[in-house]
Structure formats: C-alpha cells, structure tokens
C-alpha cells in the first residue's frame, strides 16, 4: 500500500487528470511472466468429425510412409554400441532404400554422387584448360606465321592454314574419345599416356610446327 502511494506521489503532474484515481492503478508487476501461466479461459475443444478424422489418418499415414522412403536420410549410426537383433533387419532395409535415382536433368550436376570415376573427372577438369591454352598459342603462332608468309606466297600458306586447324581439331577430338574409352577400361594406363602426350604438346609440338613453316 505504502509503495503504491509513493509511486503515485512521484509523478510531477496531477494523476487524477488522466482518470487514474487512487486504487485504480493496476498492481505493479515483479519479474517476468511465468513460463506456463494459468489461463482464465479453458481452450475450446478441437473440431471433431469425419473430415477431421480422415485428415488425421492421412497425416499419420503420410508421416509413416515418408519416413520409409529413401528421401528420409538417416545419420550415420555409431557402430560402437552393441548390435541388436532388430538392427540387422533395419540395415537390410536401409540398403534397399539406397537405390533412389533422381532425374539428374533437374538437379545440378555437382550433386551427382561420385563413385569410382573420381580420377576420371579430375582429368577431364584439367583438360579443357590445357586444350584452350594450347589452341590459343597455336593460333597466335599461326597468325604470326601467316603474316610472315603472306608476303611470300599467299596461296600456299592459305591452303596450309586451312588444313592445319582442321587436323588439329580432329586430333583433339580423337584424343578425347580415346581417353574415355581407355578410362573405362583402365585408369592407370590412361593417365600415364595422357601425361606423356600433354607434355609433348607443351614443348615439342610447337617447335615442330614452327620448323615446318
């Protein structure tokens, strides 16, 4: 009581003007609200009927089936615990579920599970860069040569330059196909073979190319 009196007295203006009389102030609050407050009004009962029952059944069925679909991904279980009899069956089912193959046309390529083709992919990743660099170098040199030879005998060089890139392209394509074929058979030989050729392409080939012109 005394506390409340002091509270009102502390205002610098006439509190009565606001329509707040003595005793009409709500009680001051101490501390936060309780986590589970008592409610004055009981909640309304849920709707019950055929529709609701059916939807309830649908919901529970949906949850049940979704948990058995391969879309439900289980965390890797720790094997340290004692293996239980039931787990053997569970695991079997898990293995069965694994073979879910989504339509990869609708998914980004990077999500495709990598299996044995790890090395193969690395190779192919490197390759395009190299080819392009090599191509660019070749092209520059060819252009240089073209400029030089143009002055001499234009007809010959034209023929040659036309032929040359075609050949090279074919070669490159040939390489690619070869590589793929070999890759599937044996990774080891392929990589060895590829490296050797790439090295050659980097150094010797170009020198040769210059020499012919």
């Amino acid at each position: 009581m005394a506390g409340k009196g002091r509270g009102i007295g502390a205002f610098t203006f006439n509190v009565e003007a606001l329509g707040i009389g003595r005793g009409s102030m709500p009680e001051s609050r101490v501390g936060p609200n309780p986590l589970f407050p008592n409610i004055d009004f009981k909640p309304v009962p849920l709707k019950a009927g055929e529709d609701e029952d059916y939807m309830l059944a649908l919901k529970q069925e949906m949850r049940g089936t979704m948990q058995q679909l391969p879309h439900h991904i289980k965390a890797q279980c720790n094997k340290a615990e004692v293996e239980r009899y039931t787990e053997r069956y569970l695991k079997q089912r898990l293995i069965e579920d694994q073979d879910w193959s989504p339509d990869w046309n609708l998914l980004p390529k990077e999500l495709m599970p990598k299996k044995k083709k790890m090395c193969a992919k690395k190779e192919t990743k490197k390759k395009p860069e190299k080819i392009s660099r090599k191509d660019a170098e070749d092209m520059l040199k060819k252009l240089d040569n073209l400029a030089k030879t143009d002055e001499g005998n234009p007809e010959k060089s034209d023929d040659e330059t036309e032929k040359k890139p075609e050949n090279e392209e074919e070669e490159i394509e040939g390489e690619e196909y070869d590589e793929e074929d070999v890759e599937e058979e044996n990774d080891y030989i392929d990589s060895y073979f590829d490296n050797g050729e790439d090295g050659a392409a980097g150094s010797d080939d170009n020198v040769d190319g210059e020499a012919t012109y």
């Binding site: 998914l107 980004p108 495709m112």
Partner: peptide, 16 residues
C-alpha cells in the same frame, strides 16, 4: 556434415 550426406540432402530438398 560429410560431402555425401550434404549432397543427398540437397537432392532431397530440390526433389521436393
């Protein structure tokens, strides 16, 4: 999370 599981989870999310 391991790469494999993340990939699979993303597949599931995209699929749905």
């Amino acid at each position: 999370i391991s790469l494999d599981l993340v990939k699979k989870s993303l597949c599931v999310l995209v699929q749905h």
